[in-house]
Amino acid sequence: MRILLIEDDRRTADFVSKGFAQAGHSCDVFADGRDGLFQSQSDAYDVMVVDRMLPGLDGLSVVRAARAARVRTPVLFLTAVGGVDDRVEGLEAGGDDYLVKPFAFSELLARVNALARRPPVQEQKTVLKVADLELDLIRREARRAGQVIELQPREFTLLEVLMRGEGRVVTRTMLLEHVWDFHFDPKTSVVETHVSRLRAKIDKPFAAQLLHTIRNTGYSLHAPR
């Protein structure tokens, strides 16, 4: 296991790093928050152990910046600041566990091993794709075969729900709930009307049909079969 330890207390850093080495793990040590943050983004680690009180950049800021930079490495805060509010603040900053000094190394090792066993966090998709149709959730842009498709906000949401359910039947009730936030049937043709408008934009100008009506059930968006 590769561990990144960001700890400015020399005695603690030596004690912890030697303990990890004896347990068969590789441990890189940095005493400055900014240096530790840079290292967290430039190399792959299984776990980060971070002190809260650091020179250069405090531990909370290190973890917040790492998370903002899409660093998904599990983080354990190792610190003398142990109040309930402090622990909550650490977890909300992006930490996964919190151990208060003084501590037993056996407990630290057990917690680090537990974090390393966690399955990796899957990143939320920001671009959905079905055949040659793409939906960019960040730029709020739809394209098919490289051609930009102008969508109204409700049409965009409708298409997103259909694309997330690729290949499956999305019922009228599901669309009412997820697109219009209706938890009842308003007895209108709002779904049918918007689906018709969406189909005219994403299907009719192109050779292959992607959006299919499933009679008396709902709709399905999938690649040509």
Score class of each variant (00 low, 15 high):
Pro120Asp: 10
Arg118Phe: 03
Leu109Met: 06
Asp136Lys: 05
Ala104Met: 13
Leu133Gln: 07
Leu135Tyr: 01
Asp136Met: 06
Leu135Asn: 01
Gly95Trp: 03
Ser106Asp: 15
Val121Arg: 15
Lys129Gly: 03
Asp136Gly: 08
Lys129Ile: 05
Ala116Gly: 12
Arg118Asn: 10
Ala93Lys: 11
Phe103Met: 11
Ala116Thr: 01
Lys129Tyr: 04
Pro102Glu: 09
Pro102Cys: 13
Leu91Arg: 05
Leu91Ser: 08
Ala93Asn: 08
Pro119Ile: 03
Thr126Glu: 13
Glu123Phe: 12
Ala131Leu: 02
Glu123Leu: 09
Glu107Tyr: 13
Leu115Ser: 01
Lys101Asn: 10
Gly95Ala: 11
Leu108Gln: 05
Leu109Ile: 03
Asp96Val: 09
Leu128Tyr: 12
Arg118Tyr: 07
Lys101Arg: 15
Leu109Arg: 01
Asp97Trp: 01
Gly90Asn: 06
Ala131Asn: 07
Val100Lys: 07
Leu135Thr: 05
Asp97Ala: 15
Leu109Phe: 09
Ala131Ile: 02
Asn113Arg: 02
Arg118Asp: 03
Asp96Ala: 09
Val121Ala: 15
Arg111Pro: 02
Leu108His: 04
Leu108Trp: 03
Leu133Cys: 08
Gly90His: 08
Pro119His: 10
Asp96Phe: 02
Asp132Pro: 02
Ser106Glu: 15
Leu137Glu: 00
Asp96Trp: 01
Pro119Gln: 15
Gln122Thr: 11
Leu128Phe: 12
Lys125Arg: 13
Glu107Cys: 10
Ala131Tyr: 04
Glu92Leu: 14
Leu109Asn: 01
Lys125Glu: 14
Gly95Asp: 05
Val121His: 13
Val100Met: 10
Val121Ser: 14
Leu91Ile: 13
Gln124Cys: 05
Gly95Glu: 05
Ala114Trp: 00
Val121Phe: 12
Glu123Pro: 07
Tyr98Ser: 12
Val100Leu: 09
Leu108Glu: 03
Leu137Cys: 03
Val112Cys: 10
Val100Gln: 11
Ala114Ser: 14
Ala116Asn: 03
Val130Thr: 10
Gly95Cys: 08
Arg118Glu: 07
Ala116Ser: 11
Glu123Tyr: 03
Ala104Val: 14
Leu128Asn: 06
Arg117Val: 00
Leu135Ile: 07
Leu99Met: 14
Ala104Lys: 15
Val100Thr: 15
Glu107Thr: 15
Ala104Gly: 14
Arg118Ala: 08
Leu137Pro: 02
Phe103Trp: 11
Glu92Val: 10
Val127Glu: 06
Ala116Arg: 07
Phe105Met: 11
